[in-house]
């Protein structure tokens, strides 16, 4: 194509400048802050502490609890979202007359704002008036109401359940699209060869879906590991540290504690953990994009 060799950079310049200002500058600034003892209400005394904030982490019990909770949170939430979404995709891949309505309705949780999801589930989990206690008492599973979000042993699971609800449609939609990309001739050939439904799943569906599933899992793991709004709305991290995850702890230290230096160090540690996953995802996607 004709044109000056600077033309593409001209088209890119606005986006690059904006990104440098609102993404790269903040990230660099977070790295800088993480090496300083920066407290908001003491803006003129910001001593350099080197890796002091990071050293402090190691002795911080709340950090270790948050880290462990993050693993539980990501493992359970992503695992269950995937299982439910995979099941949903298999069901919705069959034909029945109200299938398109079912497909549309199933996406609703994905579209809702996290704050509303937090709100809805807080209401459902309510100790005095909640739907969950009501239903479980009626069918006799519970003898008395449970304060789902206020008990250390149920709070994290209750929030995970809300996130599973929010996230399973993503897997359902992505896997369904992958299923439909598998040519129907393959299914027919396998059926003629006498393959059972399970064998077809193993030898026809799985090889065709592997790539899609891995990408979706990576993307979702990164997303869930980063997300803190649903927890923030539902429990604020409590009771105690029961629902503290790493991003939430970083946010609370910076926002409520005004300890920007320490909060930044926590954010950097979270990013380092995710970097490995993000690298794999980015590599795969770039390979696809530049085939």
């Amino acid at each position: 194509m004709v044109g000056n060799r600077f033309t593409p950079y001209l088209f890119l310049a606005p986006a690059l400048l904006a990104t440098a200002a609102i993404v790269l500058y903040p990230v660099a600034s977070t790295l800088w802050m993480s090496l300083h003892d920066f407290v908001l209400f003491r803006p003129h005394s910001v001593p350099f502490v080197g890796f002091g904030n990071y050293a402090r982490l190691l002795a911080d019990e709340a950090f270790w609890i948050s880290l462990w909770n993050s693993f539980v949170w990501v493992g359970l939430a992503v695992g269950l979202q995937f299982a439910l979404g995979f099941g949903a995709a298999l069901v919705l891949n069959e034909s029945f007359f109200w299938r398109s309505a079912a497909r549309a309705l199933i996406i609703i949780p994905w579209a809702l704002p996290s704050v509303i999801i937090g709100l809805m589930f807080t209401w459902i989990y309510d100790y005095n008036l909640g739907l969950l206690n009501d239903l479980l008492l009626r069918i006799g599973v519970l003898d008395g109401p449970v304060a789902w979000l206020a008990r250390a042993d149920t709070a994290l699971l209750a929030v995970v359940a809300a996130l599973v609800w929010q996230g399973f449609p993503f897997f359902a939609v992505v896997i369904l699209a992958g299923l439909q990309a598998i040519p129907s001739e393959l299914h027919e050939a396998a059926e003629i060869d006498g393959a059972s439904r399970l064998q077809r799943l193993r030898h026809v569906v799985w090889p065709g879906l592997k790539g899609v599933i891995l990408t979706a899992l990576l993307l979702r793991t990164i997303w869930v590991a980063n997300s803190l709004d649903v927890i923030l709305v539902m429990t604020g991290g409590g009771p105690g540290y029961a629902t503290h995850t790493l991003p939430l702890y970083a946010f609370l230290r910076a926002y409520s504690g005004m300890e920007f230096g320490y909060g930044s160090a926590l954010a950097v540690v979270l990013t380092l953990f995710l970097m490995a996953l993000a690298t794999v995802y980015v590599r795969r996607t770039m390979r696809e994009a530049f085939r």
């Binding site: 990230v27 970083a250 946010f251 979270l270």
Partner: peptide, 8 residues
């Protein structure tokens, strides 16, 4: 992560 950018 949002927490990496939001404070600065």
């Amino acid at each position: 992560p949002i927490v990496l950018m939001i404070i600065p």
